[in-house]
Write a protein that binds this DNA or RNA. Structure first.
Lengths: 205, 205
DNA sequence: CCTCTTCTGTAGAGGTTAGTACAGAAGTGG
DNA sequence: CCACTTCTGTACTAACCTCTACAGAAGAGG
């Protein structure tokens, strides 16, 4: 089963992780393959043999980001005792991720949005779908709460999801502009006051 | 007083306006001088003679944007009958601007943020200062309301300004991702429910 | 008309981009 | 040991980037 031929001399997963960090920091269009291969510690032919081209490498990097970073937000939502806490956990958890000291600031996928132009339409569409997924994950959690009776039946889950997604995007930009973690947490608390005004008396917490 | 020499054969203001639209649509780093001179209908030497270089052209384009687009938001705030309406006017007016049919979507300055990397630090800093100005304009309006007794003396104006600025950035991204104007107006209404929770009983509206 | 100045188009310099040809290295299977 | 496969480093291509040298065009002042 083992493949024949000279074995790869670098760790593909580690190289992909490095590429993710570089794209996260610098965006898609503004990152050159020279930057990438230098950071990954390999030469261009190795990069292209392992990842096909810049676009495919970026897609794999985004997928890795979703599997690791974004997944932690999803888990935080699942572990919360109720819907309100789930939304708060999503927002506060995202703030922590957006301002982590050992990683680039903000959300990789949000940042990727702006750094591709019409020239990279397929990359742009890919990132767009990723962002839409965040919103539907949140909407699904809200719908589940409606189904279980935790939220009133006439709750406009889609609109609430859109609101918090929009706010989350704003947080990513603020983080990238250098906002302090503590301040962003305060902003999340403010955003959560929208909650009570929108979800009716069923949720007291 | 008239300058001697062969007169410029194009309208500098019109060319700058065109450049603004191109930068607005495509960002800084991802717009090439070839794109610019083609759109402006002039050749590279004319572009460089009139605007010095790409960075200076971008700075002038941002300044034009602030003088025209952003100024309309400021005016909407000034014309509002009270603080709350001023903030609402800022947000709703921005949504209209972000989704105007004849212009690129979203805010040019927000978009410029992500499209420059560490390579263009001076441009990045410039855009950062522009974004900070939006927040301080809003904070100033809130402070004026406190001074005039329209808002309670202990109102945390800076935090409120930070919240709405963050939300505004999120709106810009949503607009760029293709969100409908009507939906964004609904999100603004949701964001305004934060208002009553934060400003105390002095403001009933 | 002539000079002086400044603009215009052509054409290209010098650097960076994404991606690759090729020869040799380093494994596996027989 | 040898064929076969696949990776590796060097060195490159073709296209693009920002910006400019240069010659001629087009105005103003005398």
């Amino acid at each position: 089963m083992a493949r024949t031929g000279r074995p790869r001399s670098f760790d593909r997963d580690a190289a992909l992780h490095t590429a993710m960090l570089v794209f996260w920091e610098r965006g898609y269009a503004t990152t050159s393959t020279t930057d990438l291969s230098a950071a990954m510690g390999i030469n261009p032919p190795s990069l292209y043999a392992a990842f096909k081209n810049k676009e495919q490498l970026f897609r794999e990097a985004i997928e890795l980001y979703e599997r690791t970073e974004a997944e932690s937000s999803r888990r935080a939502m699942d572990e919360a005792p109720n819907v309100r806490e789930a939304v708060a956990a999503l927002l506060h958890g995202s703030v922590d991720r957006f301002t982590a000291e050992d990683r680039p600031r903000g959300c990789m996928i949000v940042h990727a949005a702006s750094s591709c132009t019409t020239d990279h339409e397929s990359v742009r569409d890919f990132a767009l779908r990723c962002r839409a997924r965040t919103k539907s994950t949140l909407a699904a959690r809200l719908d589940a709460a409606v189904a279980s009776g935790e939220l009133a039946g006439d709750t406009d889950t889609d609109r609430i999801a859109a609101f918090y997604t929009t706010f989350l995007n704003g947080l990513s930009l603020q983080a990238r502009d250098g906002a302090e973690r503590a301040q962003l947490h305060e902003l999340v608390d403010m955003a959560m006051t929208v909650w009570s005004a929108r979800t009716g008396p069923l949720v007291a917490a």
